[in-house]
Lab assay of single mutants.
Amino acid sequence: GNAVQEIMIPASKAGLVIGKGGETIKQLQERAGVKMVMIQDGPQNTGADKPLRITGDPYKVQQAKEMVLELIRD
C-alpha cells in the first residue's frame, strides 16, 4: 500500500528542494521512486514553513524523506 508523509520545509529552503524550474524535486522523485508535492498555501504565507507531501511505498517514502532532510540541512 501507499504511505503518505509530510515534512515541514522552512520557507528559505523550499526553493532548494524544488530547484530551478522544478528540476530538483523531479530528480528526487525519480531517484526515490515516490511522488512529492510542495503544498503552497497561498501568497500571504510566504514566510511560513511549507509542507512537502511524499507519497509512495513506505520504505521509499522513508528514503525520500532522508534525502530531503539531507538536502535542507545546513
Rank of each mutant, 00 (worst) to 15 (best):
E23S: 15
G42R: 12
Q62E: 14
K50L: 14
V4N: 15
Y59I: 15
G19W: 02
Q44D: 13
P10N: 03
V17K: 01
Q62D: 13
G19R: 02
I7N: 00
I7D: 00
E23K: 15
I54T: 01
L69C: 10
V61P: 01
N45V: 09
K60Q: 10
Q27L: 07
M36N: 01
R31K: 14
K65F: 03
V34M: 01
G21V: 04
Q44S: 10
N45H: 12
K60L: 08
K50P: 04
E66C: 06
G21C: 08
G47M: 10
S12Y: 05
G56Q: 00
L69S: 12
V68E: 02
V17W: 03
D49L: 09
Q29V: 03
I54C: 02
G1E: 09
P58N: 05
T24Y: 06
D57F: 03
M36Q: 01
L69G: 12
P43D: 09
M67T: 06
R73A: 15
P43V: 12
T46A: 08
K50F: 05
G1Q: 03
A32Q: 08
M67Y: 07
R73S: 15
P51C: 13
A48I: 13
I25L: 13
K50T: 12
S12W: 05
Q63K: 13
M38S: 04
E70L: 04
Q62Y: 10
M36K: 01
I25G: 01
R53S: 05
K35T: 07
T55I: 11
G56H: 00
G33K: 07
V34G: 01
D41R: 09
D49S: 08
E30K: 12
P10Y: 00
K65A: 09
D41Q: 13
P51Y: 09
M67E: 07
Q40I: 05
I9P: 00
G22L: 05
Q5W: 14
I9R: 00
E30S: 13
S12V: 09
P51M: 14
Y59H: 15
N2V: 15
I72N: 02
I54H: 00
E23I: 09
K13Y: 07
Q44R: 10
N2E: 15
I72L: 14
Q27R: 12
A48M: 14
V61L: 03
P43C: 10
A11E: 06
M8Q: 11
A11K: 12
M38K: 02
V4R: 09
R73P: 04
Q63R: 11
K35H: 13
G19F: 02
E70A: 10
M38C: 04
N45E: 11
R31Q: 14
R53T: 13
L16E: 09
G56K: 00
Q62A: 13
G56F: 00
K35Q: 14
P10H: 02
A3G: 09
R53C: 06
R53L: 08
D74I: 05
G1C: 05
A3C: 15
E66M: 08
K50V: 13
Q44A: 12
V37E: 13
M67C: 04
K13D: 05
I9K: 00
Q40P: 09
P43H: 13
I39D: 06
K13G: 03
L69E: 14
I72P: 02
G47D: 10
L52P: 00
R73I: 05
M38P: 03
R31V: 06
M67R: 07
A14M: 14
G15F: 14
I7Y: 01
V34N: 01
A32M: 12
G42T: 11
A48T: 14
M8C: 03
G42V: 08
E66A: 07
Q44N: 14
R73E: 15
E23L: 09
G1K: 10
G1P: 04
G15A: 05
I7W: 01
Q29L: 02
I54F: 04
P10V: 00
K60A: 10
K13Q: 10
Q5R: 14
I9Q: 01
T46K: 08
P10W: 00
Q27E: 13
M67P: 02
Q29R: 05
G1H: 04
D57T: 11
I72Y: 03
P51F: 08
G33N: 09
I25Q: 03
E30L: 11
A64N: 01
N2Q: 15
A48K: 13
I54A: 01
G1D: 08
V37Q: 11
E30W: 07
V34W: 00
G33L: 03
D57R: 07
I7H: 00
G21S: 11
E23G: 14
T55W: 06
G21L: 06
Q63M: 11
A48H: 10
I7E: 01
K50G: 04
I18Q: 09
D74L: 03
M36D: 01
K26F: 05
T46E: 11
V68Q: 02
V17Q: 01
R53D: 01
G19Y: 01
K50W: 09
P43N: 05
D49Q: 07
I18C: 06
R73K: 14
I54Y: 00
R73C: 13
I9M: 03
E66W: 04
A32R: 02
R73L: 06
N45C: 12
E30V: 11
K60G: 07
I7R: 00
T46I: 09
M36V: 03
M67G: 04
E70R: 09
Q63E: 13
Q29H: 02
N2F: 15
E30T: 08
